[in-house]
Design a protein around this nucleic acid. Structure first.
Lengths: 138, 138
DNA sequence: CACCGTTGTAACCATTGTAGTTACTTCGAA
DNA sequence: TTCGAAGTAACTACAATGGTTACAACGGTG
């Protein structure tokens, strides 16, 4: 199956680095810790910036958190990098046959359940913030 | 973002059809209700068969449930068609730098949270069975 | 001002998962 | 034996992903 993109884990890695590190976190430095290409880091940091989670200093370099460590949850990070409409984690097949009672009615029923399941996952992500996560490895 | 495959919604559609319908459900008939190619249906039904959810009669045609309607949950269906290892809904980026304290320790901490989030979603799916779903459109 | 490291992007590529299609074989009852 | 159905292999088109190169824009420092 297609997994949820590693953008999420990389984003959490980036934010953890910024939160923990005292030195200036440049894209290249972060790329070294994540072990990937600096452009990947810049792309993801751009998303985090757009989401209002970090401030990035162009030219001089370096980034800092715009919220307190315990005000940034994994759900915030997830939402910042997994650009996903509304409640669309699950894909629903297109246009079931309206002539069939099942085809006509299953979409509403199943979509509701999908939304609940997605919500359950997201609420679990919302329970953990950067502080709690960082506490496990400082 | 890449969504969870429509195999899941199609599989639920298929099972609902079999559960509700009195007539023989052939692949072509189901394909008509789902509104897709019969081969897609056969592929997914093969997964459902392998998971022990349905019995398919080759040659003569038609399928039937191998469990009671209220013994088949959405999680069972999900597991049958989303061939996903263990608890790997989330992808974790490869080999963070072990030289860095964050890179060295974030994987275990984050993987644990990912697993919890995935589990929360799956437990929600486990709460709904085919009977409950079908009750919404019979 | 010129330099230089950093950020911000655009463009491109290889890989992979998905959905669909055609074509063919195998099955099993009439 | 026939015929409709299941089972599958092979192929295509498309999109997301992760990575790479290249280059422009930024902003302190000498």
């Amino acid at each position: 199956m297609k997994q949820i993109s590693s953008r999420f884990s990389i984003a959490v890695h980036i934010l953890s680095l910024i939160a923990v590190s005292s030195k200036d976190c440049t894209g290249d430095y972060i790329a070294g810790s994540v072990n990937t290409n600096p452009v990947i880091i810049r792309r993801i940091m751009g998303m985090l910036k757009k989401a209002g989670l970090v401030d990035i200093r162009p030219g001089v370099g370096g980034a800092s958190l715009l919220k307190d460590r315990d005000q940034i949850t994994l759900l915030d990070v997830y939402r910042a990098v997994e650009v996903i409409e509304d409640g669309q984690l699950f894909n629903f097949h297109d246009e079931p046959n309206p002539e069939c009672p099942v085809g006509r009615n299953i979409e509403a029923a199943l979509r509701a359940e999908m939304k609940e399941a997605q919500s359950a996952m997201e609420q679990r992500l919302a329970q953990v913030n950067l502080s709690q996560l960082a506490a496990q490895f400082v």
